[in-house]
Design a protein around this nucleic acid. Sequence first.
DNA 1: GCCAACGTTGGC
DNA 2: GCCAACGTTGGC
Length: 155
Amino acid sequence: MRYWLMKSEPDEASIDHALAAPDRTLPWTGVRNYQARNFMRDDMRIGDGVLFYHSSCAEPGIAGIAEVASGCYPDPTQFDPASPYHDPKSTREQPRWLLVDVRALQKTRLIPLPELRSHPALAGMQMLRRGNRLSITTVSADEWEFIVGRLAQGA
DNA sequence: GCCAACGTTGGC
DNA sequence: GCCAACGTTGGC
């Protein structure tokens, strides 16, 4: 069992959107970075824990807990010329981009980015590293325990 | 809107 | 393969 942090812009897909979706599950469309794709392809397993992070918004931070709900499969938006995620270099025979389904488990209180940075226990978090832009990053078991078991209380 | 940091592209 | 130019991310 591994743990992940996945960024989403709440205007597009917030924790509330996920909780309101059928089976509380959203296809995680739009990943267009090879390292993030490879995490989904090579390392994610169904049932892995996910910290649902809101980015590019007024208050960025962790907004909920989720889980990986499917194996990876081609992201259909890459084939859609009308989609902002369209990739003309991708074909159905050889798709470049993959996604997994993510099932929301619970909304937490919003745990803001500055609060995450303030905890020495989280100093090594991949997403807190300087200049990090990856939309999917790894979370250690200790970091998961600290965030889910401590910071997320009082939701 | 600014800008630091990083990834990708493409000419050579 | 190098690397400059360009595009994107994302916090502030």
